[in-house]
């Protein structure tokens, strides 16, 4: 069974402006993907593309004015979008664990690290406290925190960024999750520490056999780390497929640009560098969201785009997916 299946997810920010008119920012526009047990999916895309929002929508962490207006999220066959909070709380931190971007400020500043690990285990798995305590030490060991016994007694503010991120990983592992969601787990860390954390994450994913959703800006992370890739732009997944397929033959103009804009080792095309404004979510164009920035755009692009399967399991959200080279000459952004 598919572990996580997201289908046609629409998340909007619904607010009222000064004239009391309803304003809607369409931040997610029909996001669909699925994740099998044991697979690692990387979501990439520029800032504001809706990557974090996708993760928050999945686990029901949206805050007003954000709201899921349509779509479904199924985890182990159970629908999450309309699940009451109390029930979701039994899944979050338990079957679905999250690693977030700001480890130092995310930990509870008034509780010792070890106690936070124990608390999390007690809440979800119960059992004797001593067992939780033992598990906490094991997990701290697993994430490579030296001297877990004494580390367990430290306060969050005493940790370096890298150590705090390891603690967050240990938190995530406490209840043996089936799905790990890591939202830019290395942003804000030193470059050398970033590499360490990524290596650690990779070994943990293999060792504990978790399906993993990793959100990142960095195609390099995806290339080295993931089985599958989903490229997001303007609240849609514009291309998805196995990492090998997508890197070998990117079918969407945006993906091509993205790959071209990263260092040479990933450079596979000679498309123009990335640039341009992100789309105005309050006022999305009809048709393709990329049209004002796309070098291939034509009149046709103003009509609704469907996901095209360019190869088995490799989809692109473009009218000209798979045939960009032979695309007609009536370009509007030439």
């Amino acid at each position: 069974m598919t572990l996580l299946k997201v289908e046609d997810l629409h998340t909007h920010f619904i607010s009222r402006d000064l004239d009391n008119q309803i304003c809607i920012a369409k931040a997610l526009n029909g996001v669909s993907f699925s994740l099998e047990a044991g697979r690692v999916l990387g979501i990439v895309g520029e800032t504001g593309a809706g990557k974090s929002l996708t993760a928050q929508s999945i686990v029901g962490l949206l805050r007003p004015p954000a709201k899921i207006v349509a779509g479904s999220v199924r985890f182990e066959g159970r629908e999450l979008t309309d699940m009451p909070d109390a029930e979701l709380n039994r899944i979050r931190g338990n079957n679905i664990a999250m690693v977030v971007q700001n480890p130092r400020t995310s930990l509870d500043p008034l509780t010792r690290v070890g106690d936070q690990l124990v608390r999390l285990h007690q809440i979800h798995s119960g059992g004797p406290k001593t067992a939780s305590h033992k598990r906490a030490l094991e997990m701290m060991e697993a994430v490579g925190l030296p001297d877990p016994e004494s580390r367990a007694k430290s306060w969050p503010h005493e940790l370096s960024g890298g150590m705090a991120q390891r603690v967050l990983l240990a938190m995530a592992l406490m209840n043996s999750p089936k799905l790990l969601i890591a939202d830019e787990p290395t942003t804000g860390l030193d470059v050398t520490v970033q590499a360490q954390i990524l290596d650690l994450l990779r070994s943990l994913v293999a060792r504990f056999d978790m399906a993993t959703l990793i959100i990142t800006h960095d195609l390099g992370v995806v290339a080295h780390f993931c089985n599958d890739i989903a490229v997001m732009f303007g609240g849609s997944i514009v291309e998805t497929g196995s990492v090998r397929d997508v890197f070998a033959a990117p079918a969407h103009p945006y993906t091509r640009n993205l790959i071209a804009a990263t260092p040479e080792r990933f450079q596979m095309g000679r498309a123009k560098a990335l640039g341009g404004q992100p789309p105005d979510l309050y006022n999305l164009p009809s048709g393709c969201v990329l049209q004002s920035r796309c070098a291939y755009a034509t009149e046709l692009c103003q009509t609704t785009v469907r996901n095209a399967e360019v190869a088995e399991g490799h989809f692109a959200l473009c009218h000209y997916a798979g045939r960009l080279e032979e695309q007609p000459a009536v370009k509007i952004n030439a």
């Binding site: 686990v59 962490l61 909070d85 109390a86 979701l88 709380n89 039994r90 899944i91 979050r92 931190g93 338990n94 664990a97 999250m98 977030v100 700001n102 400020t105 995310s106 930990l107 509870d108 500043p109 008034l110 608390r119 999390l120 809440i123 979800h124 938190m171």
Partner: peptide, 23 residues
């Protein structure tokens, strides 16, 4: 961030309130 993360960890509402109170 702390409260956001507490929610992400599935802390029950009661515990989250306690956390807010303490902080």
């Amino acid at each position: 961030d702390t409260v956001r993360y507490a929610h992400a960890c599935g802390l029950p509402e009661r515990n989250v309130r306690k956390l807010v109170l303490r902080n």
